[in-house]
């Protein structure tokens, strides 16, 4: 059908404006739609085939209970102290714990390269942000929720845990440590 009328967007369209789109628009809308489907499909695909997912084991937990689990974990596997923070060397395959609290991450974790652990993260007070530096893995740490993530360190080294959710005036002092050998 030939168009013999065109108007701007401040003009009230007269008569029926429900008309078929032009060829170029149809092509672009189709390409865009297919692209959207690809964007969507990538996520379930990575969920099943990819190695990095935020799914985890998720459960509610009372902050006092979580603190108790962390204390027990420290008591079980403590191997020393670093700057006043307990250092813990858990066996590969085990459940390991790190608590965020204004303004520290504890304990320091000593892990084995290539081994798998289930890392439980939670907060004892307010929201914190778990940033594993310099790997750049980021998770939100919400009080009352236990985030259990299976992790496999793929490189040895000295890592930091930087808090990247605002948690008050001492936010910038909140740095923890993970050692992989």
């Amino acid at each position: 059908m030939e168009h013999t009328e065109a108007h701007s967007a401040i003009v009230s369209p007269q008569g029926t404006w429900w008309r078929p789109a032009g060829r170029q628009e149809k092509i672009w809308v189709s390409i865009a739609f297919v692209w959207c489907l690809i964007l969507f499909a990538m996520m379930p695909f990575w969920h099943f085939k990819g190695g990095q997912n935020p799914s985890g084991i998720r459960a509610k937990v009372n902050p006092q209970d979580f603190a108790a689990r962390v204390e027990k974990f420290i008591a079980d596997y403590k191997v020393g102290e670093d700057n006043g923070v307990a250092v813990v060397a858990p066996p590969p395959g085990s459940h390991i714990y790190m608590a965020g609290q204004m303004w520290r991450w504890y304990p320091v974790l000593k892990l084995k390269e290539g081994a798998q652990y289930t890392l439980h993260l939670s907060s004892l007070d307010i929201n914190h942000g778990f940033n594993l530096f310099p790997v750049n893995l980021n998770f939100q740490i919400v009080p009352g929720y236990d985030y259990g993530l299976k992790i496999v360190p793929n490189k040895s080294g000295d890592f930091r845990v930087v808090c990247n959710e605002f948690c008050g005036i001492g936010h910038h002092m909140m740095v923890g440590k993970v050692v992989v050998d």
Partner: peptide
């Protein structure tokens, strides 16, 4: 951000933190 620098952060030299952080 690609190097991991946090948002909403006053001091990325992390003064007074127990462990040092050196960005790229």
């Amino acid at each position: 951000g690609i190097f991991g620098v946090p948002r909403r952060h006053w001091d990325i030299s992390m003064s007074n933190a127990p462990f040092q952080v050196e960005y790229h």
